[in-house]
Design a protein around this nucleic acid. Structure first.
Lengths: 206, 206
DNA sequence: TCATTTTATGAATATATATTCATAAAATGG
DNA sequence: CCATTTTATGAATATATATTCATAAAATGA
């Protein structure tokens, strides 16, 4: 059902241009240091034009984050649905995630540096449940599946475990991001490591 | 060797007053939203006075974070030194850390929300190695001890494991911080959980 | 081609707040 | 008690930048 008029489609394209510019500028300078003027220039528009497409700076920023996370969720969901056993699901989840961040390094910079902003301001500006929440819910679902299939402990709640899961992945990505000089080793190569640590811990198996 | 003149000591006291005020205001509003005026008022000084004690807003902020982390490091070092076996060391480390964050909830708010700032701007303003680095080094040392004593795997590097360790603790603290309504259950109660997950993973032990 | 609507422009505005500095108050010490 | 030094004050300054808006350009369609 394609109901976009040409006008609407054009508008979407221009919004998209601006979002791409914002992505570059925000990730280069961070939220506060990036100016609307920077972003407009990068998108080859005048300052005021940006405001015809995004109400204000906050909203521009959030639109960008939302768009990206939606992408990630979509990719992850599609791929994990293709298998049934929880172990594969989890492994695929990790791999997809690493892949995404590797291909979206700029975005990752934003995501990391402004996480807190996203958590506090979001409530005031968005009525709809945040995509981060959706994302979180999906990891909880994964863990529950693992518990149901008996490969993950049920000594602890799925939410609690999901948080740990997420933070381990993020910490590895962050570490890689920080230390890898440009075109270094593949982030995706760390999938195994994450899965192992997450499932088996760091204790020495005697 | 007490070499502080009364003048110097007074100055320290006033700096301390200002730091306490900054702690309250920063944690209430975050770095950008907190104004120097807010902080001055909270400390019962005029705006300009703050500048007699701290060169600028950034430095005030970093002084605060440094001071707190130094505290944490000191506490952690002292306590872990009292035992020899790595398992106890690690358990104590976790417990002390939780204890610290529980007692310094305000500070934790700052620490979390401005982590990125701290990581980027620091280099430019401080020549001395940051306390965060010291902190990180200490966790690496802990892991190495564990590896040397054969309770932690040496399939992976100590740095890599230390990052994971740190991030697991932080994620638990963050979670608690977010969900616990005021005077709820003790954060310190989660020590066991962290140790278990970290060492044994979330895999179901058959 | 021209009248009307839509879109773009960027200088001007509005606001916010970090920082300074001339002035005043307080402390010092002789 | 006075002269000098130190410390505190807070109004004024400087700067930065998000946002607006009068104006211009472009697109539309008859």
């Amino acid at each position: 059902m394609i109901t976009l008029t040409r006008k609407e489609r054009d508008r979407q394209l221009r919004k998209s241009d601006i979002l791409r510019a914002a992505e570059r500028i925000f990730s280069l300078k961070g939220f506060h240091e990036a100016t609307m003027c920077d972003i407009a220039k990068e998108a080859q528009y005048a300052t005021g034009t940006v405001y015809l497409y995004f109400k204000d700076k906050d909203l521009l920023y959030f639109s960008l984050v939302e768009e990206k996370i939606k992408c990630l969720i979509a990719a992850v969901k599609e791929d994990t649905e293709s298998v049934d056993d929880a172990e594969s699901k989890i492994k695929i989840f990790i791999a997809r995630q690493l892949d995404f961040f590797e291909k979206n390094q700029d975005f990752f910079g934003i995501f990391l540096s402004e996480r807190s902003k996203f958590q506090t301001v979001r409530e005031e500006k968005f009525s709809k449940p945040s995509v981060l929440l959706q994302y979180r819910e999906f990891t909880v679902y994964l863990i529950k599946t693992g518990q149901a299939q008996g490969i993950i402990t049920d000594n602890y709640g799925s939410k609690q475990i999901a948080e740990i899961f997420f933070s381990i992945i993020m910490s590895v990505v962050f570490d890689w991001f920080k230390n890898t000089p440009k075109a270094g080793s593949a982030l995706s190569g760390l999938s195994e490591f994450i899965f192992d640590i997450f499932v088996n811990g760091v204790g020495k198996n005697k």
